[in-house]
Simulated assay, not measured.
Amino acid sequence: MRDLINYSFSKYFNILLLSFLTVIMLSCNGKNPNASSLDIAKKYYQALDKSNREVMSGLLEDTLYTVETDYNYKHAFTKEDYVNNWMVWDSLFNPTYTVLEIDTLNDQIKAIISKHDMRIQLLHEAPTVWTETMYIKDNKITRIERQNVTFNDSIWIKNRAELINWVNINHPELIGFLDGQNKSIGKKYLKAITLFNNSHQ
């Protein structure tokens, strides 16, 4: 009888131990501490291309620092501002992001990215291309540094000035379409581009 009790207890204990270890393993897998930085970066660019704000929200740290090294410009986005303002603004122009190259180097992501949309077509007359260095900590993107590869400042400035002047004369109600990056301002910008293009056909 004692042997039977000991056997039952041992079996029950082993089942409990196995269940406990299984829960621990699943919990660790859920946190995914060894998630590939390269996979995270690829998901980021896919989310940009598809304007998928839900996916993007899960990839970013609470604060995202972006750096334009050509102009020594640095900006700190809150996750909410980046996802719910900048991404919405960006999506209005129907962008296409293409990853030309991507790899890891010294725990950083190095990529070459091309972008084209209605705004870029008007102002730059061709896709823009840049190199990007992405920093990831604890599976969250914390910082992105960009440097231009293909970007013609003179064409961009000339075409932007022409658009601004045309809007000031023909559609003053759209003045301020460059004053921010959110949905309402983006709609003004999109309307300005559409009206300008229609008038120059």
Results as ranks from 00 to 15, higher is better:
residue 1 M to C: 07
residue 3 D to Q: 11
residue 4 L to N: 08
residue 6 N to D: 09
residue 10 S to W: 06
residue 12 Y to S: 12
residue 13 F to T: 13
residue 14 N to I: 07
residue 15 I to R: 11
residue 20 F to G: 06
residue 20 F to L: 13
residue 22 T to S: 12
residue 23 V to C: 11
residue 23 V to Y: 09
residue 24 I to H: 05
residue 25 M to S: 13
residue 26 L to H: 08
residue 26 L to D: 05
residue 28 C to L: 14
residue 28 C to V: 12
residue 31 K to S: 05
residue 31 K to Y: 12
residue 32 N to D: 15
residue 33 P to D: 02
residue 35 A to T: 04
residue 36 S to R: 03
residue 42 K to R: 14
residue 46 Q to W: 07
residue 46 Q to E: 13
residue 46 Q to G: 13
residue 48 L to D: 01
residue 50 K to Y: 07
residue 51 S to Q: 12
residue 51 S to A: 15
residue 53 R to A: 07
residue 55 V to D: 08
residue 58 G to Y: 09
residue 59 L to Q: 01
residue 63 T to S: 15
residue 63 T to P: 04
residue 63 T to K: 13
residue 63 T to E: 14
residue 68 E to Q: 12
residue 68 E to G: 13
residue 69 T to S: 15
residue 69 T to Q: 06
residue 73 Y to S: 12
residue 74 K to D: 05
residue 76 A to Q: 10
residue 78 T to L: 02
residue 79 K to M: 06
residue 80 E to P: 04
residue 86 W to N: 03
residue 89 W to V: 01
residue 89 W to E: 01
residue 90 D to R: 02
residue 94 N to M: 07
residue 94 N to T: 14
residue 96 T to P: 02
residue 97 Y to Q: 04
residue 97 Y to G: 02
residue 100 L to M: 07
residue 100 L to Q: 14
residue 100 L to Y: 04
residue 100 L to H: 09
residue 100 L to W: 04
residue 101 E to K: 11
residue 101 E to L: 06
residue 101 E to C: 03
residue 102 I to H: 00
residue 102 I to M: 06
residue 103 D to I: 08
residue 104 T to P: 02
residue 109 I to C: 00
residue 110 K to S: 05
residue 110 K to E: 05
residue 113 I to D: 00
residue 114 S to N: 09
residue 114 S to A: 14
residue 116 H to P: 02
residue 117 D to M: 01
residue 120 I to F: 03
residue 121 Q to F: 06
residue 122 L to P: 00
residue 122 L to H: 01
residue 124 H to T: 06
residue 128 T to H: 06
residue 130 W to T: 05
residue 132 E to H: 05
residue 132 E to S: 14
residue 133 T to K: 05
residue 134 M to N: 01
residue 135 Y to N: 12
residue 135 Y to D: 09
residue 135 Y to S: 13
residue 135 Y to E: 11
residue 143 R to C: 06
residue 146 R to H: 08
residue 147 Q to H: 11
residue 148 N to I: 08
residue 150 T to H: 12
residue 150 T to R: 12
residue 151 F to V: 03
residue 156 W to L: 04
residue 160 R to L: 13
residue 161 A to F: 07
residue 162 E to W: 03
residue 164 I to E: 10
residue 165 N to H: 11
residue 165 N to C: 05
residue 169 I to E: 15
residue 169 I to W: 04
residue 170 N to D: 08
residue 170 N to G: 11
residue 170 N to K: 13
residue 170 N to W: 03
residue 171 H to W: 08
residue 171 H to A: 15
residue 173 E to V: 09
residue 173 E to P: 02
residue 174 L to P: 00
residue 176 G to W: 10
residue 177 F to H: 02
residue 180 G to Y: 01
residue 182 N to E: 14
residue 184 S to N: 11
residue 185 I to R: 01
residue 186 G to N: 00
residue 187 K to W: 05
residue 188 K to F: 04
residue 189 Y to R: 03
residue 194 T to Q: 15
residue 195 L to W: 03
residue 195 L to Q: 06
residue 196 F to Y: 15
residue 196 F to A: 03
residue 198 N to P: 03
residue 199 S to Q: 09
residue 200 H to S: 12
